[in-house]
Computed example of a mutant assay.
Amino acid sequence: MARLIALFLIAGSVAALSGCNTMAGAGEDISKGGNALSNSAEKAK
C-alpha cells in the first residue's frame, strides 16, 4: 500500500512539473508573438 501511495505522489509531482513547463513555454511563445506584432506596428508608423 505504501508503494502505491508513493507511486501516486511521484506521478503527481511529475505531472505538475511538466504542466508548469508547458505553460511557461506557451507564455514565452505568446510573448514573442506579441513582440513581433509590436515591432511590425512600430515599423508601419
Rank of each mutant, 00 (worst) to 15 (best):
G12C: 05
R3N: 14
K45M: 08
E42Y: 09
S40W: 07
K32I: 11
R3C: 10
G19C: 02
M1L: 14
A11Q: 01
A26C: 03
S40N: 10
A11L: 05
G12I: 05
K32Q: 09
A2S: 13
S38W: 09
M1A: 15
S13A: 10
S31G: 08
N39A: 08
T22M: 05
L7R: 11
R3F: 11
E42F: 09
A44W: 07
A26P: 00
G34H: 11
T22R: 03
L9Q: 14
N35W: 15
S31T: 08
A15S: 05
A26S: 04
S40D: 14
N21V: 13
M1D: 15
E42H: 08
A44L: 10
E42C: 03
L7N: 09
G33W: 01
A11P: 02
K32A: 05
A16Y: 07
S38M: 09
G34I: 13
D29Q: 06
L37F: 08
G33M: 03
A16F: 03
S18W: 06
L17R: 02
G19P: 00
C20Q: 13
A16K: 03
L37R: 04
N21G: 13
E28S: 01
K45R: 15
N21E: 14
E28K: 02
R3E: 14
N21C: 12
S13K: 03
K43M: 06
I30D: 01
G27S: 07
I5W: 03
R3Q: 12
F8I: 12
M1Y: 12
A41W: 03
A15F: 09
S38H: 11
A36G: 05
L37A: 08
G12Q: 02
R3P: 04
R3K: 11
M1W: 13
N21T: 11
G27P: 00
A15T: 06
A2F: 13
K43Y: 06
M23S: 01
T22K: 04
S18P: 00
S18K: 04
L7S: 09
G27K: 05
F8H: 11
A2R: 13
A16M: 07
I30R: 02
L17I: 10
K45G: 11
G34T: 11
A26K: 05
N35S: 15
A26D: 09
